[in-house]
Amino acid sequence: MQKYNIQQFPPSATKPNLLANPTPVESYDEFDFGWFRTPANPESIVMGFSHLRIKDGYKLRAYQYMEGGNGNGVVWAIPIDTDLPDPNECERLEEHFLSAPKPAFALDDFMQGIDGDKTPLSYLQASIAFHELHEFGAFWHGTSWGRDIILPLKDDQKSHYDLYEWEMIEDEPEIIEPHFYYDIEGNPVIVFHTINDIGNITLNRYVHTFSKNDYTAHVERTCIATAGGGIIF
């Protein structure tokens, strides 16, 4: 796939750069088991990035799933004049491993409710928001993305992660920094690499190919190297 006008970013650009003070959610459940409406507001993630915003007429709300110390969540973009219904009033997504509830009026993809200024940095921020929102409400065994360390490593990380002896599955990346380009079809693309130590230590490449029309994205994660056993929790 053709790449041109590549723009590189420091890892710090993947971090939120605004202090977010989200509006409290309107309705939530006082539960700590099964599926329930969480008081946590997923809009705080989007509001932490200066080049993103919630689309006019929409808001983000989430359901939380708890079982013991494990947690997962699901985020939906819904019309601003609606409330998140009780999960028992929703259809269930059979393809979701916990049969997550989906309101009838929710958009199919929460990224349809997110907009930005179309700059390269906005797409980098959107790629991080994508992962953070997909793992919103995750605890313990529900965590995956939360253990990803975006490369290149900071000085205070190198003493630990540089000890790994990598067995390469693919060639080492030409560009290790997070970067942006337009593909041959004109779609914005963000690529970054991470280390994740859950189960097996892996070096991973994430490729986010965004729509030309909005901030929905197709995301591919590829393991390009391994370094033995990691953590188990």
Rank of each mutant, 00 (worst) to 15 (best):
H131Y: 02
N187Q: 13
Y164F: 15
H160G: 01
F36Y: 15
Y63T: 05
L151M: 13
Y206P: 01
E89F: 04
E43C: 03
I78F: 10
S127H: 09
L124G: 05
F33D: 10
G199Q: 08
E165L: 10
I80P: 00
I190A: 04
N196W: 02
F105S: 09
M66H: 09
Q7D: 01
P42V: 05
D183F: 00
Q64H: 09
R61W: 06
Q112Y: 01
T143I: 15
F180Y: 15
N196P: 01
H208D: 14
E185L: 13
V25K: 04
K55V: 06
D162I: 01
M1N: 11
P152R: 10
W166T: 05
F139T: 12
H131L: 13
F110V: 01
G68Q: 11
M111V: 00
L124F: 05
S12F: 02
E91Y: 11
E170D: 15
K212L: 11
F97S: 12
Q125R: 03
T14C: 15
C223R: 14
G228I: 11
G186L: 10
V207E: 15
W35C: 02
G34M: 08
P188Y: 04
Y215H: 06
G57K: 04
R221W: 00
G186Q: 10
A77E: 02
W35Y: 04
